[in-house]
């Protein structure tokens, strides 16, 4: 029994290989992109849009609203990254209803890749928002003594993200496989439904945690910025006087 779809290799040439994880990921990407393309090529600005457009708008606006509720000022800047995380993980879980399919998120490589993306995206968005110095200052908050712990926290939460998603998705697929051997009727269907629910919850958790990390990285500097702005204004006024 394969613990991960990585082990199902279709083609290999030295370091390069094509395994089930990559193939299923491409499949998901194809469905997502082509589906989006098909729907969005006939977008209407009328008061009453089409059903598919309505569904897409609900999804996009829902993601947008979630990002906004976490506390980000401009959700449009982050929706591509965070929305893609959610949609990819959610679709990966949803497709478990297709027989023979294995979710790529059940591979620790995929979850690690996603966690690495988040790990890299957090400082990138933080630097973009508040500058390199501003972002790095976050690590010595509240005191410089906390610097190692902040770095450990950053690494551990990335690891936690990867392992949490992998554990949940892998366990779901594993339980389903074991149950199919033991009780091949009815019960696996119930477990499959439960797996769908778990997958959706995991997609939400993963993307909302990523949102919170990015929000934390981009929001830290705001009060100081305001303070600096106020100081600058005071200096300018004094000079004029």
């Amino acid at each position: 029994m394969n613990l991960s779809p990585d082990d199902k290799v279709f083609w290999q040439a030295g370091f390069f290989k094509l395994n089930a994880t990559i193939i299923y990921t491409w499949g998901l990407m194809f469905v997502l992109v082509v589906g989006s393309r098909l729907i969005t090529q006939h977008l209407s600005t009328e008061i009453k849009p089409s059903r598919w457009q309505n569904i897409l708008e609900i999804i996009v606006l829902g993601i947008n609203q979630q990002i906004e509720e976490v506390g980000m000022k401009h959700p449009q800047q982050y929706i591509s990254f965070l929305g893609s995380l959610f949609l990819f993980i959610a679709m990966a879980s949803l497709f478990t209803i297709v027989p023979g399919y294995e979710p790529p998120t059940g591979s620790l490589s995929t979850t690690a890749a996603l966690a690495i993306c988040v790990f890299v995206a957090v400082p990138l968005f933080g630097i973009k928002e508040s500058g390199l110095g501003g972002y790095l200052r976050v690590y010595r908050e509240p005191t410089i003594l906390m610097l190692p712990f902040n770095i450990i926290s950053e690494l551990s939460r990335t690891l936690a993200l990867a392992v949490r998603l992998f554990g949940n998705m892998m366990s779901g697929a594993m339980i389903l496989a074991i149950l199919l051997i033991i009780t091949p009727f009815i019960f696996p269907i119930a477990m499959s439904v439960l797996g769908l629910l778990t997958g959706m919850v995991q997609a939400y958790i993963f993307s909302i945690l990523a949102t919170v990390y990015i929000a934390a990285a981009t929001r830290v500097r705001e009060p100081e910025d305001n303070k600096n702005d106020a100081e600058n204004k005071t200096i300018k006024t004094a000079k004029k006087g």
Partner: peptide, 14 residues
């Protein structure tokens, strides 16, 4: 459990 080529490929895919 981690295949680093797959990790890199998945990062690029993502």
């Amino acid at each position: 459990l981690i295949d680093w080529f797959t990790v890199i490929a998945q990062v690029i895919n993502f």
